[in-house]
Design a protein around this nucleic acid. Structure first.
Lengths: 166, 166
DNA sequence: TCCATTTACTTTACATATAAAATAAATGGA
DNA sequence: TCCATTTATTTTATATGTAAAGTAAATGGA
């Protein structure tokens, strides 16, 4: 009878995994949507632009286009378009690279820095408001739980890439 | 001195809320990317298409364009484009509404149903593999934690909409 | 030095997303 | 019945995303 039991467990595990994923995706999209709407209505901006400016804020000396793509985990073509539009609004600027003529360093303009500071302050408050129903212990537990998922994804990707290589 | 203590707590709460959001977003995007890549390479499909077909699978008698938009939480224009492309590949079909000439019912074709069944089976297994590092108790706890966030978002949206109305 | 290869970035074609305007049909009073 | 309003969908303009091809510069041996 233990064969049957294992089958039921496996099916239950699959159902639970799927349910967790759908809840995770739904929660994440709800917050993304809420934050997107606020960035648009308050600042005529977007998550993509805010994320890009966050990276530039962390590296005041500038970041190359390709490093931007790596930090944001998006393609080079995407970075080109985002920087083009932010540059048109004079929030960021491409600066010639000192030694590599293929490369450009992207930096925030002073206008960009001021705009980002305002956005970051409000953004922080929005997230605090959104999480207001959880106490600090719950937040910590959830954070740790998500960290387990992160580790588990990495392990699965490791398994998959090893299988593909063979 | 309790004023100072409260300030520190508040700042700590903001930092934790932001950290949780960044982890939630990162985890969700990692899985989305993993699933997207697999849907593309295995089935030449995408999350958007899979989600749309999931709704049609739940409602075998068909769903109107506007109901599709509501279920998927996307705009009408987006639904039009997705259904156009799926219809071109004969995975779904627009059928005239029985009584409302403005409306069309979208249904899956038999080809679409077969394709969806295959995708759903593998999709379920992918998520199980991705969550393989967590035991069932951890999955349940995480699910409950995310449910708290869901409730908290709803409460915040309630607060915001009440404020805007006044 | 020369050149094959790699690296950095842009361009192109396309999918997916929104908001806003357009179109057409249904609906609910006066 | 008539018409103002609402509802259902599409169209348009634009942003954001990818993959793949193209361009130009750097790099690392022979």
């Amino acid at each position: 009878m233990s064969g049957k039991k294992r089958q039921v467990d496996q099916s239950e595990r699959e159902a639970q995994s799927l349910r967790l994923w759908l809840r995770l995706l739904g929660t994440s999209r709800s917050i993304e949507e809420e934050v997107s709407v606020r960035l648009r209505t308050r600042f005529e901006s977007s998550l993509a632009r805010f994320d890009l400016m966050s990276v530039l804020n962390r590296f005041p000396d500038g970041v190359t286009m390709s490093d931007l793509g790596r930090h944001l985990r998006v393609s080079g073509g995407n970075v080109t378009g985002l920087v083009d539009r932010l540059e048109r609004e004079e929030l960021v600027q491409r600066v010639a690279h000192a030694t590599d003529r293929r490369s450009s360093m992207v930096v925030m303009t002073e206008h960009g820095q001021n705009a980002f500071k305002q956005m970051a302050t409000e953004h922080r408050q929005w997230l605090t408001d959104i999480m207001a129903g959880l106490d600090m212990a719950q937040i910590d537990k959830l954070y740790d739980g998500l960290d387990h998922v992160r580790t588990s994804i990495a392990a699965e990707q490791e398994r998959t890439s090893r299988k593909e290589a063979s």
